[in-house]
Design a protein around this nucleic acid. Structure first.
Lengths: 246, 246
DNA sequence: TAATCAAACTGGTAATGACCACATGACAAT
DNA sequence: ATTGTCATGTGGTCATTACCAGTTTGATTA
């Protein structure tokens, strides 16, 4: 059991330990459904207290890598359960996880007078008159995957330019660097709809083809709405994944 | 701050405390975005250690009722974020949560030779020759919402009859009472498809109408696959909800 | 041989005490 | 008026110790 814990590391010890154990699991050093060393054994193996051990194990259990059985031990989850906990990801990250090369074409970007639905979703105060709207064609391996329209309530007078977006690629990076906004949680709904002629042309499919419509409201670290996003996915090329727990 | 903690209660103290605080939040005794008492204050308010306090708060943070800010305090989440973390629910529970009266019509129930896809999804051993298949029409307020086909790998020789299913209503209750199987986790995928003539007739829509196809694999408390379910939802009547976190 | 039971594991809960990192506001120095 | 500093309050991490509650195992008993 190599790799020890450095008490002076920037990362807390329970976090380091979780990383080490996760690596072992992913490397297959622990078999699925087999027990890992008991908490008391780990205590002496890594010379940290049981408090710290349990903090690390808690993390890995929440992440789906381990499961516990009272009185029996802590066991490795089978592969199926290990990945893809419902995570808040951008289109870019989503594609990368699937092994598809993400791409985009910015169709339109600019400040607009928000329609009622957007006002409501962004929980805008009455005095707010302008929001940022971005419309993009999203590509996977250079093939159109969906049309994304997103709305942001930025500080008075501020905005994001097409150049900035093209340079950074991800809007989340800009929001973080420029406005210190980090998405932490989101509500998403999915439903079925049919392509309008315009959408069909953009997605290179026939008008009236079925689409998967995702609407997402994302919240910042301050628990305020930070964005509202609508994505129309091609029904024949996109599948949504979710992981559910009790 | 009424309601104290009973050290001799069957529920652990951190759990009792979480219940008390959750009630306060739901009753509106704490305002959204306002801080709750600090951990040291709660310590003396409820006469339990900070360990216990933090365990209770951890629970409520994971459940979406509270959020923490280092150096500032622990705050009440706005209503929007408090409910509906992606939970593993049956069709029946799902409908109830939406305020719709669930109903069902059993189309077919019986043991069958599993097709390859089902073998794979249920992770069946080669010697297994029979699985339980149930096909049901699902109703919401007496209107067809979807067609559900589910598969179960039951112990050799065992089965579930139409009468049992009609009597209990929920298959999960039977699985729990008769076989001690409890679902704890599931993987779900969603995609778009078009109704076949048969499906269209069952759902009282036109053939070729868009449908939302959900495929779910549920795992038992022993981390074994316990069911595989396909549901075809009417595209015009069903919307899927998810809650995402970082 | 089979049933019983106690010891020795496992994870679960809890108290106590300590120190760190970050945020805030009061106050002094500029 | 502005800036800097520091005390104090917040949550975050960690060690230590103790006991409780399930599970497993093996010796003991009938």
């Amino acid at each position: 059991m190599p790799e020890m814990i450095d008490p002076d590391h920037v990362l807390p010890r329970y976090y380091q330990l979780a990383n080490i154990l996760r690596e072992h699991i992913l490397d297959g050093k622990f078999e699925p459904h087999q027990p890992i060393p008991s908490e008391r054994q780990l205590e002496s193996l890594y010379s940290v207290s049981r408090t710290t051990i349990r903090q690390a194990l808690d993390l890995l259990v929440r992440q789906g890598y381990l499961y516990r059985e009272h009185g029996r031990g802590t066991f490795v989850s089978p592969q199926k359960l290990q990945k893809g906990i419902s995570e808040l990801t951008s289109f870019t990250e989503d594609m990368k996880q699937r092994g598809i090369a993400p791409g985009q074409k910015i169709l339109e970007i600019g400040m607009i007078e928000p329609p009622d639905k957007v006002r409501q979703k962004l929980e805008l105060p009455p005095e707010c008159r302008q929001v940022l709207r971005i419309e993009r064609l999203r590509l996977g391996d250079s093939i159109p995957m969906g049309v994304q329209t997103s709305f942001y309530n930025l500080p008075e007078g501020q905005t994001i330019t097409r150049e900035e977006l093209e340079q950074f690629g991800s809007i989340y990076i800009i929001l973080q660097e420029k406005f210190h906004l980090i998405p932490t949680e989101a509500d998403e709904t999915l439903e079925v709809t049919l392509a309008t002629p315009r959408e069909a042309a953009l997605l290179q499919i026939e008008a009236g083809s079925p689409l998967l419509l995702s609407e997402r409201t994302a919240y910042s670290q301050y628990r305020r709405v930070m964005e509202f996003v609508k994505i129309l996915y091609r029904g024949d090329r996109y599948r949504y994944f979710a992981k559910l727990t009790r």
